[in-house]
């Protein structure tokens, strides 16, 4: 076990845990955001750089600070490590810079984007971005490619987190899409027009943090905040599919089916394409109850639930954290 101090809060985690997961154990406002790291996907992380934190003491044995900011999603903790996230001006400043970088070539077409309202980049830029842009040039655009009848690819919105690549690697037998090209010309593609057809490929929609991969069966049908999320399940015969989903409905009509995500937007159990795209009748499903939308999302417009650190988990909260928690509640 390793004991670390994260933003002034002590937490004990198992050896080999990453700083980000240690912070998630604390929870609340201190958790660094993550755009590319995805716990169920092995190998993900380290690419978007929004989770950068300042390590002011490397370990109990070697208490020197680390010279650079480190990506918290891939850096394992050491016993006695002291990490600063919201307390470190350098880390917050760097994050602001990274958010700007992520946005300079993003089309900002949120009003017509299906992801709006549940977009990680949108949330991130509200929290850490600036209201204006210093970028004067033309934004990057790509030729449209068709990747099949179920999934829509908007390459202009992509932030190249590689999550969909890892998903295809780990859930399907043969990946047909990947990153082509280099530098800011790199794009997600299938090389020679190929369609994504695997039974589990629909999960790339759920893992995508932005609106680059969206559900063609839901496209332009509704805004997510007008739909009502409900937990539901069915006995799915596809091997490997858990059958536990969230139904997004309006009235009696099921508009969209997605996997269940936790408070950090991560799918824990993946679902098959049959559940996602074909079962769009209320009668296909057994309703479990209303969906708990945990994050400060427009979907939960009238009942915001703010991220608060559970005082039972961390008994001695430092004053600055308690203060912000109270402020948030007001």
């Amino acid at each position: 076990m390793a004991k670390i101090t994260f933003d002034g809060i002590e937490v004990e985690v198992e050896d080999g845990t990453t700083i980000l997961n240690a912070a998630r154990k604390i929870g609340g406002n201190v958790v660094p955001p993550a755009m590319c790291y995805y716990t169920p996907l092995k190998g993900s992380g380290g690419k978007c750089r929004v989770c950068l934190v300042k390590v002011t003491a490397g370990s109990a044995k070697d208490p020197r600070p680390m010279p650079k900011l480190v990506a918290s999603c891939i850096t394992p903790v050491q016993d006695g490590m002291v990490v600063e996230n919201t307390l470190s001006e350098q880390a917050m400043e760097a994050r602001k810079g990274i958010v700007e970088m992520l946005l300079i070539n993003h089309p900002l077409d949120c009003p017509v984007c299906d992801q709006a309202g549940e977009c990680d980049l949108q949330n991130l830029s509200y929290e850490h971005g600036t209201s204006g842009t210093r970028y004067e040039e033309d934004r990057r655009t790509f030729d449209k490619i068709d990747i099949g009848p179920l999934i829509q690819l908007h390459m202009t919105r992509c932030i190249l987190c590689y999550r969909c690549v890892y998903t295809a690697d780990q859930l399907t037998e043969k990946r047909v899409h990947g990153v082509l090209g280099r530098g800011d010309a790199s794009e997600i593609g299938t090389y020679i027009e190929n369609s994504l057809e695997n039974e589990f490929i629909g999960n790339v929609i759920d893992v995508c943090p932005v609106g680059a991969l969206t559900d063609k069966t839901f496209r332009f049908k509704n805004r997510v905040w007008f739909t009502k999320p409900m937990d539901a399940h069915r006995e799915c015969e596809t091997p490997g599919c858990c059958g536990k989903v969230v139904l997004w409905s309006r009235g009696e009509e099921v508009l969209r089916v997605t996997a269940r995500k936790n408070e950090y937007g991560e799918v824990e159990e993946f679902i098959c394409n049959t559940c996602r795209f074909d079962k769009k009748e209320m009668s296909d499903w057994i309703i479990d109850g209303p969906r708990h939308i945990a994050r400060a999302s427009v979907i939960a417009a009238n009942h915001y639930e703010l991220p608060v650190i559970n005082p039972h988990l961390v008994p001695d909260l430092p004053a600055h954290v308690v203060d912000t928690q109270i402020q948030d509640q007001n």
């Binding site: 978007c48 190249l160 590689y162």
Partner: peptide, 13 residues
């Protein structure tokens, strides 16, 4: 290489 965002976007900018 285009893997991490500061370099991918920043060098072009």
């Amino acid at each position: 290489c285009g893997q991490c965002s500061p370099c991918r976007e920043g060098t072009g900018w």
